[in-house]
Simulated scan of single mutants.
Amino acid sequence: MRNAGLSRGAIRHRVEAGRVLRLSRGVYGGPDDWEMRLQALFRRLPSSAVVGFHTGAQLHGFGAAASADLHVIVPAGTVVPHIRGVVAHEAVLPVPVSVEIAGVPCAPAARCAVDLARVLRRMDGLPLLDLCLRSGACDPDELRTEVRRHAGLRGVCQARQLIGLADPRSECRQESQLRLLLVDGGLPAPEPQLWVPDSYGVPLYRLDLGYRKPKIGLEYDGLSHLDRDRLRHDRSRMNWLAANGWRMRHFTDTDLYRRPRHILSTVAALLHT
């Protein structure tokens, strides 16, 4: 704007009138959307910086780990100016090839997923990997190849374990966490989104999680199950499953986050009966 002939007073007037927005220190632009702010912040970063971690996952479409900050990866030893809202991760493992998304360089989806799987809590890491696969951002082979590149880095053992459990069939965060709770508790991994057929072999009902052979079904009941029409459908469904030998157990957020031992003992008792 200065090069276009506007004085500092003219720029200030446009900012005060809302016609021009201050996107970052020394950077001004049009309507303040997320992509515009991202591009504005990148103007203040070293040329070697690429988007990664939480922000990279968001750009690739599997942003299960929310963060209001812009997360970037820079080579180890890079001097990064202190910018409010920017988190710089110094990495000894380079990003060989970046991809351009929203006008900025971004680490590949597999790199973002593995980086997060190394540093997040296990209960947050598996939902993110499940969503990564379900969104089609990358496939299991890409995750396995990428995690091998991280050998020796902090958290790589956890990332490798979680990648082995990741399943694109999981449809929500709580289903992934419930599955991980059972596995970490020493129980067999249940099958996500298990279809139950009728007497003709036609898929009739789908369970959140289940064990096919012993006919055990596990459901996570969120707020959607409080809907009156949903409740009627659930009752009809539960009656049919019970009449056809399925033993169902329902869990809520209280069970998952406050009474995990109750879930483990309940499912263990069913499996051992």
Rank of each mutant, 00 (worst) to 15 (best):
H82K: 12
E100K: 10
Q193W: 02
L182C: 05
V114S: 10
V119C: 15
D139N: 15
L131V: 08
H82D: 07
R84Q: 10
G164V: 06
I83W: 03
V80I: 10
A159Y: 09
Q174K: 12
V147N: 07
W195I: 00
L153Q: 13
G164R: 12
P105H: 03
V99Q: 13
V147Y: 06
G136S: 09
D141S: 14
R134Q: 13
Q161D: 15
Q193F: 02
S176E: 05
A64G: 01
I73R: 14
G63E: 08
R154D: 08
L120K: 11
D124G: 12
R154E: 08
L182S: 02
G136K: 06
A64E: 14
G186P: 10
P105I: 06
R154S: 05
H89N: 08
V87C: 06
A66F: 13
G155D: 06
W195S: 12
V114G: 09
P105E: 06
E142H: 11
A76Q: 12
L126I: 15
L178H: 05
A117N: 03
C138L: 05
A109W: 01
L93P: 04
A64C: 01
A91D: 09
M123Y: 11
A166C: 03
R160N: 10
S67K: 00
R149K: 10
V92I: 10
G85R: 04
C106M: 00
E90Y: 11
L126F: 02
Q193T: 02
P190W: 02
I101C: 01
G125I: 03
A65K: 01
L143E: 10
E175N: 02
V119M: 15
G125Y: 08
D184W: 02
L182P: 08
A64I: 08
L59H: 02
E191W: 05
L180V: 07
A88Q: 05
A65V: 14
D139W: 09
Q193H: 03
E171F: 05
L70V: 15
V92D: 07
L129Q: 08
V104C: 07
R144H: 11
P190C: 03
Q177P: 09
S199K: 09
A102R: 13
Q174L: 00
